[in-house]
Measured scan of single mutants.
Amino acid sequence: NQASVVANQLIPINTALTLVAMRSEVVTPVGIPAEDIPRLVSMQVNRAVPLGTTLMPDMVKGYA
């Protein structure tokens, strides 16, 4: 099972992602792969992401 990126805190809309804001977890459905965490740092989310939410490619500006 592949680990996905999960919000480690509430991430407000247009907030730049940080290492502290993300964690890796095996979840269903699978979201952005955990190995992409370094690439996600400083990218912005295009919606509010609640704690525990799996990050999907369409939630991160410039990711997809």
Rank of each mutant, 00 (worst) to 15 (best):
V5K: 02
P38C: 09
P33F: 08
I37P: 01
M22V: 06
S4G: 04
V26D: 07
G31T: 02
T15E: 11
T18G: 05
D58T: 10
V41G: 02
V26K: 09
M43F: 09
D58G: 11
P33K: 07
T54V: 10
K61Y: 14
I37W: 01
T28H: 15
R47L: 07
L51K: 15
M22H: 01
N1G: 14
A3H: 10
S42V: 04
S24L: 06
T15Y: 12
V26C: 07
R47H: 06
M59R: 00
Q44I: 15
A3E: 09
Y63F: 09
I32G: 00
P57T: 05
N14W: 15
V41Y: 02
S4M: 01
R23F: 05
A48T: 14
A64M: 15
L17H: 02
P33L: 08
V27H: 02
L10V: 11
P50L: 12
A21I: 08
V45P: 03
P33W: 07
T28P: 00
L51H: 11
P38W: 14
L40E: 01
R47I: 13
N8C: 07
N1A: 15
A21H: 15
Q9W: 09
T15G: 11
P50T: 11
D58Y: 15
M56F: 11
R47C: 09
Q9M: 14
A7V: 09
V45F: 00
A34R: 04
N1K: 14
L51I: 15
A34T: 05
A7Q: 00
I37R: 06
L55V: 08
I11H: 03
N14S: 06
E35K: 14
L55E: 02
R23S: 07
V27N: 03
T28C: 08
Q9D: 09
L10M: 15
V30Q: 12
N8Y: 04
A7K: 02
P12N: 09
V20D: 15
V5L: 02
T54S: 02
M43S: 05
G62F: 08
I13L: 11
M22Q: 00
M43T: 03
S42A: 09
K61R: 15
E35L: 11
S42H: 13
V26M: 11
N8W: 05
V60G: 02
V45T: 09
V60D: 03
Q44A: 10
V30N: 11
D58H: 13
T54P: 05
N1P: 14
V6W: 03
T54K: 01
N46L: 12
N46P: 03
V30G: 10
V20W: 14
A3N: 08
M43K: 09
N46F: 04
A64R: 07
I13S: 12
V45D: 04
V5M: 01
D58W: 15
V6Q: 03
G31M: 02
P50H: 11
I37H: 00
L10E: 15
T53I: 08
P29V: 05
I32D: 00
P29Y: 03
S42W: 08
V5D: 00
N14V: 04
S42M: 12
L10R: 11
T18F: 05
N14A: 07
Y63V: 01
D58K: 07
N1H: 13
Q2D: 08
K61M: 14
P12Q: 10
L51T: 14
M59K: 01
T53V: 13
V49T: 03
E25D: 10
T54H: 03
E25W: 08
V60A: 01
G52C: 04
T28S: 12
R39T: 10
R39Y: 12
V27G: 01
M43P: 01
P57W: 11
N46W: 08
E25P: 00
R23V: 06
I37K: 04
M59N: 03
V27I: 06
T53D: 09
L19G: 05
G62L: 07
P29K: 04
D58I: 09
P33T: 07
P12F: 06
L17E: 03
I32V: 07
V45K: 00
V6C: 05
A21D: 14
I11Y: 02
R39C: 08
G62K: 07
N1L: 15
S42T: 13
P38T: 10
P38L: 12
A48F: 10
S24A: 15
V20S: 15
P38Q: 11
N8K: 07
L19N: 06
G62V: 03
K61E: 13
T54A: 05
M59A: 06
I13E: 15
A48G: 09
T53E: 11
V6G: 01
I13W: 08
V26Y: 13
L55N: 03
